[in-house]
Design a protein around this nucleic acid. Structure first.
Lengths: 209, 209
DNA sequence: TAGATTGTTAATCGATTAACAATC
DNA sequence: TAGATTGTTAATCGATTAACAATC
């Protein structure tokens, strides 16, 4: 498990490389040097070469990088070629928006079911799914080999639900609840904390005006 | 404008301090040392003291920090006591979820209007708002002293809309479109890039299993 | 006062940038 | 081959951690 300790700073730049390389592909650009990529992506050429060389020597001296090949390499590095079964917990406004989010396909995440604790939500249809009762979470996770859960419930129930789904076998969580979930070390949590983002914006604006 | 160059690393920890201090307040805890806070928040005590001392000496030797006072200080530092007029552009799934998001009040952001470019959306009611035509963006921004825009439109139109609203007076953007917007230096952009977050999760899971 | 804990300086660690030999 | 650009080592910069005198 795991490569030779890639730093989080590097990991968080990978999706950006992937996106910019995708843009270049759309514009039919075949080849790019670290210097040219630097100009459009905003990292230094040196950093780009350092970052990429954590994973392999994808370039060629005197030439640069083949856009398509590098795009493919990063796709593999990010694990976008792998498939994962996922569920979404909390079918409120945000949960519904996330359910309709088109980015899952690219990441190989397939939502297999939606859950909510609110009796008024249970049974409602959203996309191809009937919203299920959170009581049945464990059973569903075990029967459908669910690895990933997307948590879109309020702060309060989040830790309890996390404990249950982790016990049932979930090893990755995309967490939209504004809490730092406690999980065993084999479980990965990626947080999207809208409040923290908004407060950061507030700070920067105040500081700016 | 601006303090003595606070690093982004520090700024992004501030909302977390604020949140944990709020939790302590709810539990009626009056006083906390950097060591105790370290135990619950996960930063080192040393880092906590360093961070806070960028903004002032809020503690007292031999005592620690008064939770309520510190919470208030950080509130001011984050600019949560200030009011900002905002609009939301792109009233699709995500835009609707964001519109209903309760965190704005805490940040002092008041949504004054919703916009969409899709003729089928224009005129529809969402919360207290009738969705307006994006054509009227400039007029509305100028007449209502809008400082902040929340961008929830697809990647493609985002830069064009940004150029228009910045010209009309917007100085802060909460951007949910998966693009790096180009803005003049007086404009602040805070990105929430769901795809980048999801891809990071994908990497970590792949690397983990 | 004695004990506790801050504020702050100094030391360490890690990440970014610069430089350049290797090589296509 | 000559020119360009990588891969990689070394230098720098910045952020985190440790240490401790100041002080409540």
């Amino acid at each position: 498990m795991g490569n030779k300790n890639i730093s989080m700073a590097v990991i968080r730049r990978l999706p950006k490389y992937y996106r910019y390389l995708g843009d270049l592909l759309e514009r039919d650009i075949q080849r790019i040097s670290s210097k040219e990529l630097s100009d459009i992506i905003g990292f230094t050429a040196s950093q780009i070469r350092q970052d990429l060389n954590n994973f392999g020597g994808f370039g060629q001296q005197g030439y640069g990088y083949n856009v398509d090949a590098l795009h493919n390499e990063i796709e593999k590095i990010l694990g976008l070629d792998k498939k994962y079964n996922a569920i979404l917990i909390g079918a409120g406004n945000l949960g519904q928006a996330i359910t309709n989010y088109t980015g899952f396909k690219a990441a190989g995440f397939e939502i297999k079911g939606l859950f909510d604790a609110n009796p008024r939500m249970i049974g409602l249809k959203l996309r191809d799914f009937e919203i299920m009762d959170s009581d049945n979470l464990e059973e569903f996770i075990e029967e459908n080999d669910i690895e990933i859960a997307i948590i879109c419930i309020p702060k309060n129930g989040a830790q309890e639900v996390t404990d249950r789904i982790v016990k049932a076998g979930v090893t990755g969580i995309w967490n939209f609840a504004p809490v730092d979930l406690e999980v065993p070390s084999h479980v990965i949590v990626e947080n999207v904390n809208l409040t923290e983002s908004l407060f950061t914006l507030s700070y920067l604006i105040k500081d700016n005006r």
